[in-house]
């Protein structure tokens, strides 16, 4: 897992390794599983409409299937330029 911007700040770290159970199929499932396991994650992920994700460094919707992805990033909408 990689976290950026205020998601990273609220979780208190920029990365962690997780091993979700088989019923975690999509990015949204993974977010829900992490939130269920920790108050810190639950608070950081409280408003799902403000979360975006990438699988192996490519932007995907939260409904995307994790498949064989090795790197999942969760972050707020981007604000560059």
């Amino acid at each position: 897992m990689l976290y950026f911007a205020w998601v990273r700040e609220r979780i208190g770290r920029g990365s962690e390794v997780v091993d979700p159970p088989g019923e975690v199929v999509t990015v949204a499932d993974l977010i829900g599983w992490l939130a269920d396991g920790s108050a810190v994650h639950s608070a950081a992920f409280a408003d799902r409409t403000r979360l975006r994700a990438a699988l192996d460094q490519v932007f995907v919707p939260l409904e995307a299937v994790l498949g064989s992805a090795r790197e999942v990033a969760i972050f707020p909408p981007v604000t560059g330029g």
Binding site: F59, A73, F75, V78, G80, G81
Partner: peptide, 14 residues
């Protein structure tokens, strides 16, 4: 390039 950079590239401003 600048329009799409704003929405497609992962940068965050504080």
């Amino acid at each position: 390039l600048i329009d799409r950079l704003k929405t497609d590239a992962p940068f965050w401003k504080k």
